[in-house]
């Protein structure tokens, strides 16, 4: 089972020059991301969200990242988003193929 992650309903994403800021509307806390992070945030902002594996796959596919390094980076990045309250609390679990 792999949890699908998505941005909180109280978070909003804005982009500038290919980078992004996601802002929590209740707390004012925000998270700024470079172009790579912006792509991940946009995946999390889709209605269905994304899995950690899907985010890692994107980094490997689109940026040629080393998979182990990408997985560690994504895990840390997701933890920071969660700590800032920017991820939905009701992330649904979904079976993987």
């Amino acid at each position: 089972m792999t949890a699908r992650l998505r941005l909180s309903d109280r978070a909003r994403l804005a982009e500038l020059h290919g980078e992004a800021v996601v802002l929590h509307l209740a707390t004012g806390r925000y998270f700024a991301a470079n172009a790579t992070g912006a792509a991940l945030l946009k995946a999390l902002a889709t209605p269905g969200g994304a899995t950690v594996e899907g985010l890692v796959d994107g980094l490997v596919r689109d940026h040629g990242a080393d998979r182990a390094r990408a997985a560690a980076d994504v895990e840390a990045w997701v933890a920071r988003l969660r700590e800032a309250g920017l991820l939905a609390a009701d992330a649904a679990a979904e079976g993987t193929a």
Binding site: V21, L23, L25, G28, Y30, A33
Partner: peptide, 14 residues
């Protein structure tokens, strides 16, 4: 980019 947007956006929409 984000370094420009964050300081102004974070103050506006709470």
């Amino acid at each position: 980019g984000a370094a420009a947007l964050a300081p102004i956006a974070s103050q506006v929409v709470v």
